[in-house]
Amino acid sequence: QAIASRSTGSSILVSPRQKGNPILTLLRQFAWEYSDIPADYVLGQTTCALFLSLKYHRLHPEYIYNRIKSLAGKYLLRILLVMVDIGNHEDSLKELSKTSLVNNATVILCWSAAEAARYVELYKSYEHASASAIKGVESKSYAEKMVDFVTVPRSINKTDAVTIVSAFGSIKAAVNARPEEIAVISGWGEKKVRRWCSVVDEPFRARK
């Protein structure tokens, strides 16, 4: 679990261009101050963000290119925080996907000012966080893991997981059980039995 480290000393830097953006009133978690920066928001040593509303982008398509150019290769992570506030967004988004590839920017979409503010705050608060939360290391009790394991094949649910393991005593026994033995358990219909038995016996690799 990543603990949001609060770098209390530093605050979010905001470009004066953003004056009047509703995001600013929604930034409550962190202190922010205006500062003369090329980006719209500076969210850490190497992280910055440009804010773009699609409505504006449609009227002034060249704006965002100039802004990206003005970053001039600074910052490692350059977020393009795009607010989707129009209905037919397909063409604009297609173009921005291409742009992000060419100009080294990462597109993040949001659908409201509140969500945009949340992203801004998240980037700031995770400034020094490790990526362990997305590396898939979670500690869970045996029961939860057991249920997770048994319920991977579709259509097998939590109750089934409990019944099969309690009927056979252990997961190993459940894995080795014969189909006829499983079919006796309440709740285990033919389909489930067939799926379970085929999955545990199926080789991981398709043999040629």
Partner: peptide, 19 residues
């Protein structure tokens, strides 16, 4: 959202396509 944030922080060069 927060997981996306963590991912982009871990891989600043990763581009995201939203479709």
């Amino acid at each position: 959202q927060s997981k996306l944030v963590l991912l982009t922080l871990a891989f600043p060069k990763l581009r995201i396509i939203w479709s």
